Amino acid sequence: PAAEGNLDLREAILSFLKDEEGLDYGTSEILVASGGRPLIYAAFRAICDKGDNVIYAVPSWNNNHYTHFVEGGHIVIQATAENNFMPTADDIKPYVKNATLISLCSPQNPTGTTFRKQQLEEICDLIIEENKKRSEGEKKLYLLFDQMYWHLTFGNIKHYDPVSLRKDIRPYTIYIDAVSKVFAATGIRVGWSVGPADIISKMKAILTHIGAWAPMAEQKAVAYFLGKRESIKTFLSNFKKEIEERLHRIYDGFVVLRNEGLPVDAIAPEAAIYLTIKIDLAGKKTIDGKTIDDQSEVTSYILSEAGLAVVPFYAFGADRNNPWYRLSVGTCKKEEIDEMIGKLREALKKLN
């Protein structure tokens, strides 16, 4: 395939983005690769030199690893439940002067939460104002915006993206997107990035050496598929309904457990396929007198006693003692939800 992706696929993606999200980019401003991961890696490599500071919040998906790969400086923001684990402009503002890249994701993996319009506008304004202060020869402050789950919002939640909110941020914004999550096609390795042509060109050169092209057959299939707008709408309508039902039923179950006085909590689902849950068992004792010392042991206990596999936020860069988790409904069967909540209740009640 062409290093930047086949022309028919790039044109199909650009048409789709313009019609569905209002983003208007040209064929020199898009790069296709074998999923989102190589594109994120290429963006970090294209933008960051050794020692450049990268601002990212935790929990978040692999920002710590990509910053490590480029030997960048880690400016880590500990996001909190009070803001649904989304970073704010106030969190970011103290660090923009000496930063090269801000990495954001909305809807976010692992939290299933999103930026509100004003939140994202304020962050965009920070970046725009900072770049106005930088001299002509000085490296600018860029924004990497991962919107992999942007179709999958529920209820009154609306997806917002930087360039649609602030046109002046366009020269500094790189989007990451793919078919894998929103179309339940994790085995179809086709992702894309849109952004300023000079950055996209550098990313293309990097991926050419890596060989991270999307397979030809899959490129042709996705180009054809993206033209089937009515079929896509039909699919997404049902897909979103099924995901939302699973997320809300599990969330409701956690609310019941919390109201029963058990040490759990959850944040109402907003988007993606994830529910943010809290299981705060560190320090409690099992029926055989063993103390659960830390979150690693909490995770193991919940898996062995309740049969529930969840991923701790410390796997996404948060503190090791953080009691919050990502629960995915990617393989969840609706008929098993009540049983799962019941098993979790039993496991929690065994502790003292």
Rank of each mutant, 00 (worst) to 15 (best):
Y274Q: 02
T291L: 14
R258K: 15
G253N: 04
D288H: 15
S237M: 09
P263S: 07
G283R: 11
I292G: 03
L236K: 06
R249H: 11
V264E: 02
I273E: 09
T291K: 15
R246C: 09
K290F: 15
T286A: 10
K278H: 09
S296M: 15
I267P: 00
D252F: 09
E245A: 08
G289Q: 02
P263I: 01
G253S: 05
T286K: 13
K241G: 13
H248P: 07
K285R: 15
T234P: 02
K278T: 05
R246H: 14
L247G: 01
K241N: 12
Y251A: 00
A268I: 09
T234Y: 11
K241Y: 13
F235G: 06
Q295L: 10
A271I: 02
K241A: 14
I267E: 07
E244D: 15
R249Y: 05
N259W: 06
I292E: 00
V256A: 04
D293V: 11
F235R: 04
P263K: 02
R246A: 08
K240S: 10
K285G: 04
S237L: 10
T276K: 01
I232K: 01
A272T: 06
T286P: 06
D294W: 03
S296W: 13
N259C: 06
E242P: 06
F254Y: 10
I267F: 06
E245Y: 11
T286M: 15
T234F: 13
I250D: 00
G261F: 08
F235S: 00
E242H: 14
I287M: 14
D252P: 03
V264K: 07
E245M: 13
T286H: 08
D294P: 02
E270Y: 04
T234I: 13
L275R: 00
I250M: 04
L257W: 01
A282E: 07
L236F: 10
K278D: 12
E242I: 13
V255S: 02
Y274C: 06
K284L: 13
L257N: 02
N238Y: 13
R258I: 02
I273C: 08
F235Y: 15
N238Q: 14
K285Q: 12
D252V: 01
K290E: 15
A266I: 04
L247V: 09
I273S: 04
E242A: 14
V264I: 08
K284W: 10
P263G: 08
T291W: 12
A266W: 04
G253I: 03
V264H: 05
N259L: 03
T234C: 10
A272M: 05
K290I: 15
A282I: 08
V255C: 07
K240M: 07
K241W: 11
D265V: 03
T276I: 01
V264Q: 05
R246T: 12
A282F: 07
I277P: 00
S237F: 10
Q295E: 12
R249D: 13
H248R: 15
G261C: 05
I250A: 00
G261M: 01
G261H: 08
G253Y: 06
I243E: 03
K290T: 15
E245H: 11
E244C: 11
I273Q: 07
Y274K: 05
N259H: 10
D252E: 08
Y274H: 06
P269I: 02
A271L: 09
A272I: 01
Y274M: 02
F235Q: 06
H248G: 00
L236Q: 14
G289C: 05
L247M: 08
T286F: 12
I243D: 05
I250Q: 04
R246D: 10
K284E: 09
I292Q: 05
H248E: 12
L247T: 07
